[in-house]
């Protein structure tokens, strides 16, 4: 569905390469997590897929087509995009925010209205209650639901997500992650998710691509990542969830012991 071949992005002098020689494939219906520390090039990689950033070299294709052959605006309207800042437009109502892309695509008014109600229901917001509100009246979790609805509005099957749940409190984050996981399986979405949260990557992704200093270090399923021993960076990354699991186990054990 999405394929990157030897993609490099450098800024100014060729010495500062944000992304170096990345090749990746994302299959249809797959959720690929791009995992790494901040500044590792994961967001740059994501933004090259919908041409918010143009690569210095290499090719990217979406649905088998080289994206440089497509008009960037048309391309972006076909790809859902959700990011941490959400970017709901404060002067528009919730319904208007969701219907932006359908309107850009000149859908009929009735169809847009129907679609908006359908999407609000899909992300768990009561349409009659929320459609005429302004973003400022919503909680962080509700805003992000609207952000997801907006990205899905035109029926695109591909979603790019940049730290979408990063700014939410742990309970809301967990709830949204679960719901999103269900949603994307129902809709058979192909998703590229950028995150620095190892747990999020492990829980949501079909495959994880680990990046470090602009390079792709390893790609594999969550299971493969946990058992990968030969790459020191990846195994040090996985050390964090591992020790968290161990700590949790201990806590649970001790609690059980107390009952006995």
């Amino acid at each position: 569905m999405i394929e990157l071949q030897k993609v490099t992005k450098s800024y100014g002098s060729s010495h500062s390469e944000a992304v170096k020689d990345i090749s990746l494939k994302v299959a249809e219906g797959e959720l690929l997590a791009l995992l790494g520390e901040s500044g590792c090039g994961k967001t740059t990689t994501l933004k090259m897929i919908n041409r918010l950033i143009e690569p210095t070299s290499g090719t990217i294709s979406v649905k088998g087509k080289d994206i440089t052959s497509l008009d960037p605006v048309t391309l972006r309207r076909q790809i859902g995009y959700v990011f941490q800042g959400i970017g709901l437009f404060p002067h528009m109502t919730i319904a208007e925010n969701i219907s932006i892309v359908p309107e850009l695509l000149n859908w009929e008014k009735d169809k847009i209205r129907e679609r908006t109600a359908e999407l609000l229901a899909l992300v768990g917001l009561e349409a009659s209650q929320y459609k005429n509100r302004k973003p400022a009246e919503l909680s962080g979790g509700q805003k992000q639901r609207v952000g997801v609805a907006r990205a899905l509005a035109a029926g695109s099957k591909i979603m790019l997500m940049d730290e979408p749940f990063g700014a939410l409190d742990p309970i809301t984050r967990n709830e949204l992650q679960q719901e999103f996981s269900k949603l994307r399986q129902e809709l058979k979405l192909t998703v590229v998710l950028v995150t620095h949260d190892i747990m999020e990557a492990l829980l949501l992704a079909d495959r994880i691509a680990v990046m470090q200093k602009g390079r792709l270090v390893a790609v594999g399923t969550p299971h493969e990542m946990m058992s990968l021993k030969d790459d020191p960076y990846v195994s040090s990354l996985m050390q964090t969830p591992r020790s968290q699991f161990e700590k949790l186990d201990q806590l649970l054990d001790r609690k059980d012991a107390g009952h006995e």
């Binding site: 919908n50 970017g87 892309v101």
Partner: peptide
């Protein structure tokens, strides 16, 4: 104007 709004607008495919 908040840069995240500009990014959102571009990302959604506005000219």
């Amino acid at each position: 104007v908040d840069p995240s709004l500009i990014e959102a607008a571009r990302g959604l495919g506005m000219t």
